[in-house]
Structures are given as structure tokens and as C-alpha cells.
Amino acid sequence: MNKINTIIHKEWSEVFKNRMVLFTTAFLPLLLTAIPLGIIYATSSSGDFSGISGDMPSEFNAFCPENFSGGDCFQVFIVSQFMIMFMIIPLAIPAAISSYSIVGEKVNRSLEPLLATPITTTELLIGKSLSAIIPALIATWLGFAIFVIGSWIMITNPVVIGNFLDGRWLIAIFIIGPLMALSAVSFSIIISSRVNDPRVAEQVSMIIILPVLAAFFGQMAGIIILNVTFMVTSAIVLALVDAILVYLSIRLFQRETIITRWK
């Protein structure tokens, strides 16, 4: 545990000196938290949205109880859209941190002296993974907490607030978020073993956010509706994907493979 702790602190002291990593870790959550709050503020303080509910996908009506006004329903719909974007945070931050952490070490050639210490590859892999996952989860949960507090202040209808804190979003933030962070780290490790430029590793690793964008546009077009069933199914599928990615990353993250095959 002590060695894992050392690796986590080593990674943090190194990667957070990189502007790109710092930007992704600090700016992205701020942006993705500010956007839905801004929408709530705009839709609460001005305009009449009572007639707009007819423009939303009909499947979305399930989230608009009869006591909701058109404005309330619009708020729930548009914020739900951006809540999906919120799920980019637990993917983008680990991808950025682990890309710079692993490829950075490859470029610096600092992995070999590290592997020459009495640390096991499992400890090293856990240390590196946690150093990427922990900041992502802190940023996601902190962003969500700010969003909840902000919406509680701005929204007058408690039923609308309850809609943002229902099972769907709790599953998304507290179950799917960590699973996403794990898949992003494992995917980055696989990519990092093949490239020699941290920026390339980060850009390729960002492919992993495509399913989130697909969900965003899918819901906007009414093709998919993010209800509890969808979220639970997503969590199960993601857990299976994680199992495969973790297995592949462990196979690649072997002492001899790193020393002799990572170029």
C-alpha cells in the first residue's frame, strides 16, 4: 500500500506540472458544470417556454409529470442533455493523466529504473491507475455537487430538482462514472504502450468519449431515452468492457514486455 501511495504522489507531482493535464482536469469540469447551471439560470429567469415541450421527443414525456409546466419540462430535458456531457469528465481526465504519465515515462526512459525497484507490476499499475482515476472522480463528484447546489438555489420547483437527483443520475455519477474512469485508464495504457508522444496518446485515447457523444445525440434525436433501465444496462455492459480492457492492460503491463517490447 505504501508503494502504491508513493506512485500516486509521484504521478501527481509530475503530471499536474503539465499544462494540458492541468487544463483538462480543472477547466473541463468547470465548463461542463457551468453550462447546465447557465441553462437553468437562463430558463428560470427569462422567457416563456410553456409551448416548447411539444418540440421535445415524445418519449421524453415520461419525465414530465402532469404537474410540470412546459418550462419545467424543458429545463429537465435540456439539463438531462448536458448531464450526459457531464459524463465526459470521468473519461477525459483519466485519459489525459495516464497518457502523459505513461508515455511521459517512456519518453524520459524512467520506467526501467522504476521497474528495477522492489515494486511489483501490480502495485505499479494500481498506483498509476488510481493516480488518474481519483482526480477524475473528485472532479466529477465535485462538479455534480456544485450543480446540485446551484440548481437547488435557482430552481423553485422541488420536483424538478428531484428529477436531477433521481436514480438515473445517481447511477450515472456514482456507478457509471467510476467504471468509465477505469475503462479510460485501461484504454490509455493499451494506447500508451504503442505510441511515443503523450499528445498522440491523449488524442487517440479520447476516442473513448465517442459513446458518450453518441448517447448525447441519440437522446437529442429521441433514438434513446436515458431511463433507469438504460443506465443499469449501460453499467453492466461497461463493467464487462472494463473487465476486457483491464485484462488486456495487465497483459501489456508486464515487466519484461515493458522493457523489451514497448517502443
Partner: peptide, 16 residues
């Protein structure tokens, strides 16, 4: 690994 020290071909220090 506990009982040996290794200087690799490049120093491999964390430059930052």
C-alpha cells in the same frame, strides 16, 4: 531488486 542498485543507460530522472 532489494539487494541491487541499477543505473540504466539513461538516467531516467523525473525532470520536473
Amino acid at each position: 531488486r532489494r539487494s541491487v542498485g541499477l543505473l540504466t543507460e539513461t538516467p531516467g530522472l523525473s525532470d520536473n
